[in-house]
Write a protein that binds this DNA or RNA. Structure first.
Length: 466
RNA sequence: GGUGCGGUAGCCAAGUGGUUAGGCACUGGAUUGCAAAUCCAUGAACAUCGGUUCGAAUCCGAUCCGCACCUCCA
């Protein structure tokens, strides 16, 4: 059994073999905290969540770093517009980001470095690049990276440098750069930056975007680490530039594997702030959907495929989750007070192997979910004929808990049944025994108001969360 | 122009030479005081045209269509 992942650098699936053998160090490009993240952004964070969870399922340790970009054009502009200090402005969106992660049941990373706390590291890195001849200062005071000096520039994105020239979307006249494609390491202060400024050996200013990730990743994970992730739109220029900076500075390989997820699209178009076709998580939740339903949506499409977002698929997810929940509830009833697990019943015997086989293949989540649903189906069929012994049911329950360490949506939250609801249920049972249907239906409505649906079965009434 | 990713049933979505993927919806049945919910059953597909093969959704060639990246982007 080996976990194979698609490495953008090699464009092939490779077995995940951590550099140090047991611990996987991964770096994830995080949000720019100038506004609420939209669910397209969370698609990437969801992919990274699945990745770190499955790496752990495979028996490795994980150290994940996700940065917070809290200084750039957008954060500066917005904070000045609102008359707030930069830190105060970004704090609101940093808090919102963590709220949203929790609602989606995304496991926290081990480190969330904010760019503004790593300015000295960035400056040191730029100094090394100067020493080694990769950086130069232009007349406007900004410091640039000379991509001509790095022979391997373009190896991740597989750029055709000639083709780029004819693409000609390069703004030549604005800056005094040796090569139009050179990128900024340090941006000289301009009045529009307000009081957002740091001293450096090259004068006052602020860091460029790409240097952040190089500085923070290497500081927290070491000069060479295992996996670098992001959306496909980060491949170029951001990740290409990170490689150029980091490998030029250290002379060592930067990230061993590069993994990129596809877009979330709406009506066939990429969801993005600039197109305006985006939803924030809170907008979706305000429409009455749960974080778990959104999680199901973002998780169950293969991460490298683009995923079409539509409210009607959230409705479909609700039905699918209900099927899973009904199964879980049924299993729980069979367990009763049993505390010792037995062997798995035959209908669940190969579920784990099927699940792992699919996930091992570059996280084939569809195959993994098929293993889950096939088990539900086979289990329902078997249970309809013969009740499952409590010890076997407990084994199934344990299996589901284990698989849910990866999926994060299989096992429903335990719902406390309030005393009031319990009393209503008893009253209704009495009314039904007396064939007082009007009263029985009235209580059923009352239960519905409190969020519970009651189903009458041969074994008596059962409550389910609406 | 360069570089990638795609087109699978009503919708979503795996699979990549032969055996029912899966989910949602539809329809039928079981169950029920009536419901709701649930469970069971069930049909239907591989963009187009050629080729290779005993056999192609899968391999090869051509064509059509969609999306993305090419210095804000997850």
């Amino acid at each position: 059994m080996a976990f194979r992942i698609y490495n953008t650098m090699s464009r092939t699936k490779e077995e995940l073999l951590p550099i140090d053998g047991k611990q996987v160090r991964m770096y994830t490009c995080g949000p720019t905290v100038y506004n609420y993240a939209h669910i397209g952004n969370f698609r990437a964070y969801m992919f990274e969540d699945l990745l770190r969870r499955y790496i752990k399922f495979c028996g490795f340790e994980v150290v994940q770093v996700q940065n917070l970009t809290d200084v750039d054009d957008k954060t500066i502009r917005a904070s000045i517009e609102q008359g707030l200090p930069l830190k105060e402005y970004t704090k609101k969106y940093i808090d919102a980001f963590f709220d949203d992660l929790a609602k989606l049941n995304i496991e926290p990373a081990e480190h969330y470095p904010a760019a503004t706390n790593y300015i000295p590291e960035m400056i040191s890195l730029i100094e090394v690049l100067f020493e080694k001849g990769y950086a130069y200062q232009s007349d406007d005071g900004s410091v640039y990276y000379s991509i001509d000096k790095f022979a391997e520039y373009g190896k991740l994105a597989r750029l055709d440098r000639e083709g780029m020239q004819s693409g000609a979307r390069v703004d030549q006249d604005e800056y005094d750069k040796d090569n139009a494609a050179d990128f900024a390491l340090w941006k000289a202060y301009v009045p529009e930056d307000g009081d957002v400024v740091w001293d450096s050996p090259w004068g006052r200013g602020r860091p460029g975007w790409h240097i952040e990730c190089s500085a923070m990743s290497m500081k927290l994970l070491g000069e060479s680490f295992d996996i670098h992730t992001g959306g496909v739109d980060n491949i170029f220029p951001h990740h290409e530039d990170e490689i150029a900076q980091s490998e030029a500075a250290t002379g060592k390989p930067y990230s061993k594997y590069w993994m990129h997820c596809g877009y979330l699209v709406v009506d066939g178009r990429k969801m993005s702030k600039s197109l305006g076709n985006f939803y924030t998580l809170r907008e979706v939740l305000d429409r009455g959907y749960t974080g778990r339903e959104v999680r199901y949506e973002l998780l169950t499409g293969h991460y490298r495929q683009s995923l079409n977002f539509a409210f009607k698929s959230l409705d479909a997810n609700r039905a699918a989750l209900k099927r899973l929940d009904e199964f879980s509830a049924k299993i729980k009833e069979f367990i009763g007070s049993e505390t010792e697990a037995d062997e798995l019943p035959v209908w669940a015997a190969n579920t784990r192997a099927r699940f792992a086989e699919a996930m091992d293949d570059d996280m084939n989540i569809s195959g993994a979910m098929a293993a889950i649903f096939d088990t539900v189906h086979a289990g329902n069929k078997a249970i309809a004929v013969n009740p499952t012994p409590g010890k076997e049911a407990l084994a199934v329950s344990n299996l589901w808990k284990e698989l849910d360490t990866v999926l994060g949506l299989l096992v429903p939250q335990e719902e406390e049944i309030s005393l009031e609801v319990e009393e209503l249920l008893e009253d209704r049972t009495v009314a039904r025994a007396e064939k007082n249907w009007a009263e029985s239906d009235r209580i059923r409505d009352a239960l519905a108001e409190r969020g519970w649906t009651v189903k009458d079965t041969p074994e008596g009434p059962k409550l389910r969360k609406l």
